[in-house]
């Protein structure tokens, strides 16, 4: 089920100043996001090339994300990861009507992978990102951008590729 918080386009339908039920629900959800925006402990960094499969919250705490990959990531080898997304206030319910972007970047070097990865949805709230390849050792961040009708929230984790 899609979280009503970020249905920007729903305001086209209901009106920008609507006090409808949807709008009230949005208020509560946005307040949550505003209060929790600065807790940076939500995305643990792994000390090695093994992605943790513990779920973590997006940076605005609206979504819970889990990345799964059984094998350690090796430099210059293609790999894929599975991504699960669910609303933080409705755990266990897969995210719907959202689009995802997944990327891996080296912020200290100011670049990403050499080629974009391929993302496909394999089930409700479940995506698989394939053809990923980390071409350098060092600090990599994995970004999962959850796009809900134009309002994108980022979930991220990181690894130190050795």
């Amino acid at each position: 089920m899609k979280r009503p918080l970020f249905f920007l386009l729903s305001f086209v339908i209901f009106g920008c100043t609507s006090t409808s039920e949807t709008s009230e629900a949005s208020t509560a959800a946005l307040d949550l996001a505003a209060e929790s925006c600065c807790d940076l402990s939500v995305a643990p960094a792994s000390a090695n090339a093994q992605l943790t499969d513990d779920p973590f919250l997006s940076n605005g705490k609206s979504w819970r994300v889990r990345l799964e990959r059984e094998e350690p990531i090796k430099m210059r080898e293609f790999f894929s990861i599975d991504v699960w997304v669910e609303p933080a206030d409705q755990l266990g319910v897969p995210a719907e009507d959202v689009t995802l972007r997944v990327d891996a970047r080296m912020p200290h070097h100011r670049h990403g992978m050499l080629a974009p990865c391929e993302l496909s949805q394999v089930g409700p709230g479940h995506w698989r990102c394939s053809n990923m390849r980390l071409h350098m050792v060092g600090y990599w961040e994995f970004h999962v951008d959850i796009d809900d009708a134009g309002l994108v929230e980022r979930a991220q984790t990181s690894i130190e590729l050795e």
Partner: peptide
């Protein structure tokens, strides 16, 4: 770290028609 990004094209259509 980035928290969120708002698509101003969609936002303008919805909020400032």
């Amino acid at each position: 770290r980035m928290i969120r990004s708002i698509d101003l094209v969609a936002w303008t259509k919805a909020r400032l028609p």
